[in-house]
Amino acid sequence: MLSQLNSPPLYLICGLIILFVAIVCVIFLVRAYRAGKKAGMDPAVLKRAIVSSASFSILPSVGILLGVIALSGSLGTPWPWLRLSVIGALHYETQVAEAAAEQVGIGRLSGSTMTPEAFVTIALLMSICIMWGMVLSVLFNKSYLKKIRRRGRDEKKNAGREGFGDMAITAMFTGLVSVYLGSYIGGFVSGRGHLTFEGDFTPVLVCLVSAAVMAFFTWLSAKKGMKWLEGFSIAGSMLIGMLSAMVF
C-alpha cells in the first residue's frame, strides 16, 4: 500500500497544490513589498522584516519536516508533505490522522493496515476538520477587521488619546506565551504526580537558555550598535536553546 501512496501521480497532485500556494505567497509578498514602498515605509525595514522572518522560519520548518517523516510511515510521503506545507499544523495532523484511523476501523495509524479506502477517508477527514479557519476568513475577515478598526478609530477620536488596540494585541500574545510557559512549569512540578518536581525539566531549561540568549542578543543590538542582529536574534536564541536540550 505504501508504494501506492508514494507513487508519482500522488506526488504530482500534492506537488501542484503546493506550487499553487507558493505562487499565492509570492503574489502576496510582492504586492505587500510594493505597497510598503509606496506607503513611504523604509525599504531597509521591509527587507529586515523579510530576512528576519526567513531566518526565524528555518528551524521550526525542520521541526515540521520531522512531522512529515513521522507520518510518511503510515500515510506515504506526498500527503503529509502537502498537509504540512499548506494549512496543516504539526500538533494537529498526527492527532486527527490517528483519530480518523480509528473511525475507519483500521485501529492505529499504520502503513501495514492501511487500505486505499481508509487512506482517502482519513485524507478527507483531515481536510474537513481544519478548513474552518479558511472558511471564516472568506466569510468574515473583511467585516471583522473593519469593525475592529472602526472601534480603534472611535477610541482615538473620543478623547484624542492613544488607542488600546496595539496594547490589546501585545497583551493577547503575552497571554499566549504564558499558557505555554505555564504548561512547562506545571509539567515539571506536577507532571509525575502533584508537587513532586519530578516531571520533565528540559522544556523549562530550554526556555531559560533561549530567554537568556535572547537577552544577550537584545543587549548587543541595543547597546553595542549591532542592529543587524535583530533579524537573527530569535532564530539564534532558538538554536542555542534547542542545543541545550541535547547537552543536558
Binding site: 521550526p60 506565551v177 540568549v213
Partner: peptide, 8 residues
C-alpha cells in the same frame, strides 16, 4: 519551548 522562551 525554545521559541516561547525567546518570545517570553
Amino acid at each position: 519551548p525554545a521559541l516561547f522562551g525567546a518570545f517570553g
